[in-house]
Nucleic acid binder design. Structure first.
Lengths: 348, 348
DNA sequence: TTTTAGCACTCAATTAAGGAGAGTGCTAAC
DNA sequence: GTTAGCACTCTCCTTAATTGAGTGCTAAAA
């Protein structure tokens, strides 16, 4: 399906896309001939443009308008015409890292990076929390708050901290709590969360019951916390720069803005979107390639970030298909690296 | 400044406001005569309307348009014409409470209530976290995650849980940690957070240093957590139903939407807004009465919520001055009650 | 004195019409 | 294969005309 285009067609396609990204409006042959010295006349360019339209790389909003890139055109552009080399400005990474190195809290780092990415790209950024399935439980601890109220704290090796207050119908002695802590530490710590499924927990429960006289209630709440906090697909998604989409001319229609903002309000949707991306290091979905109906006029550039070599989460940008791909790609690239490093450092 | 209006003027003002709340456009004398049986002719109504305009309760967008309520008009309406009696539909409170009673986490409760309130009113809801200044520290605990990495957990009696990972340049023995925990418990627990200021913490530090050989670094990070998490005005503000403002005809201008969304993106601003409200149980700020420039065309209805009889936070709604005050007032009233109850229950 | 009918007047919003401009496709010449 | 020329198309902008809701004022009626 991906024809090899002759050099001049490539050149013209690239020029049209670049120009369109700047102007957000259809591009005519004359503009092209003037701004990009292609050494051919507008008429020739017109012929080439007609060819490119036949091949599906360009579209014409109406008979007497210029051409606009199609999704296929962008796809070709991104795959063939954009260099993916890391062309970082030296020092930028270090600067950002220094800027954020004081942050110890993983949630703070994530939302900080979401903001940073949206500021850099001027599109809306989204970051998913480290996936728990590939994390290990580093620490589990129960502490007593009041007579029949406990605080359960769970810490993963990716630095995520979850806590939940558990109210019991009975009170536990300090001895029982300390026993419970030792027991749970031994049974649960340093295990992959993916392995701490219902089956395993049932086993642990049975064993515990045999040794200690406890209410079933405690363990039920215990399950809930595990399921709720760590279930796949249920991870939190952080947004940054929501209002940037308003700057885009393709959203100068209130109806479209509404649709978009309503979408971004729904966490399940964000989850669906970000989880529909493959696991590859950097993936780009253009317009119709997206599965979610409401963003079929948007593009996504999403990278996977790593904590100690494990793919744990995704960070990316959502904007109109007419996106500044080269800039966005390198920004997402850089920030995903930094995010991984910062979290690794913070979670020791 | 608040004149006593004769009954007919009252009636007409109320009718205009009610009609305007529905239609969002200027109201003419004919409409009024038709829809509300005032038993007088449009001409008479016109005279009254001219009077009400002279008194400042109404405004005229342009010479040949109907009248629109002024801020002063809304103020009169809210103060004199809206009944503040609680007219709850019986059972609603119980239903909501049941719906959310499973939630144990205070943050979940708050954001759940923000969503609920925005769904009920169809405006944007904002809720501030329980103020820490009037809370007591219920539990402070340090636990070891790795050799030189600790987790500090702070729990207030209002159920707020804060945690922070602290990376040290030295490692602490289990004995030292357990000593530290006993010491901090004794010195800090059950104290009002307002009293745990820099002075007091310095004292504690001095005493601790005398007894235990510790790096200064630990205490520095300790301070930060206290200041960051619990400083007044720095509390988190939860939003619900941001996209509802888009439904309002007064925001059918993209520029206005942008301004508003940018405002709601800034947490400091939300803090400023919600903290500028008096401490009264239910306060309403209409248009120009607001201090923050960008919301001088908005109204706020904000209630204080209580946990065990202490005023701890605020919950409210922001929308256009043309707001359905009666419905909003009772919704905010009800939800603030429920919020307080739910948190009280969850934090035991 | 208050209320009402009548009427001229005002102003925003909608519709219609007339360019202006940008761009195309085609043809014929280079 | 490339280019100049030209008729044609379609959107966008501006201007003008029309509509319609609503007012303020005056003078008569209650």
């Amino acid at each position: 399906m991906v024809e090899e285009l002759d050099p001049r067609k490539k050149q013209i396609l690239q020029a049209i896309i670049q120009e369109h990204i700047i102007s957000a409006s259809p591009i005519g042959s004359k503009t092209l001939a003037k701004k990009y010295n292609l050494d051919v006349s507008p008429a020739t360019i017109r012929n080439e443009m007609a060819d490119l339209e036949d091949l599906g790389y360009l579209e014409q909003p109406h008979t007497s308008a210029g051409r606009v890139p199609s999704d296929k055109g962008y796809r070709y552009y991104v795959d063939q015409l954009v260099s993916r080399e890391k062309n970082e400005v030296p020092g930028v990474i270090e600067n950002i890292e220094n800027l954020y190195q004081d942050l110890q809290d993983v949630q703070d780092i994530i939302s900080g990076m979401a903001k940073m990415l949206s500021n850099m790209t001027h599109y809306t950024a989204m970051v998913s929390e480290p996936k728990s399935q590939v994390s290990r439980l580093k620490k589990v601890e129960i502490m007593q708050l009041a007579d029949n109220s406990l605080l359960l704290v769970l810490v993963t090796d990716t630095g995520m901290v979850n806590n939940k207050i558990i109210n019991l119908d009975q009170s536990l002695s300090a001895r029982k709590i300390s026993y419970l802590n030792r027991f749970l530490s031994e049974k649960l710590e340093n295990k992959l969360l993916a392995n701490l499924d219902t089956n395993y927990l049932k086993e642990v429960e049975k064993e515990l019951m045999a040794r200690l006289d406890l209410s079933v209630d405690l363990f039920k709440q215990f399950y809930n916390e595990f399921e709720g906090a760590f279930e796949p697909g249920g991870v939190k998604v952080y947004l940054g720069g929501t209002s940037y989409i308003l700057e885009q001319p393709e959203f100068n229609d209130l109806e479209k803005v509404k649709k978009m903002l309503r979408l971004l309000d729904q966490e399940e949707m964000l989850n669906k979107i970000i989880n529909s991306m493959s696991g590859s290091d950097l993936e780009i979905k253009i317009g119709q390639e997206n599965e979610v109906e409401d963003i079929k006029n948007c593009s996504l550039v999403v990278a996977t970030y790593y904590i100690s070599n494990r793919a744990v989460g995704k960070i990316g940008v959502i904007g109109p298909t007419r996106m500044e791909y080269p800039r966005v790609i390198s920004s997402v690239d850089v920030i995903s690296d930094i995010l991984g490093k910062l979290i690794s450092k913070a979670s020791g």
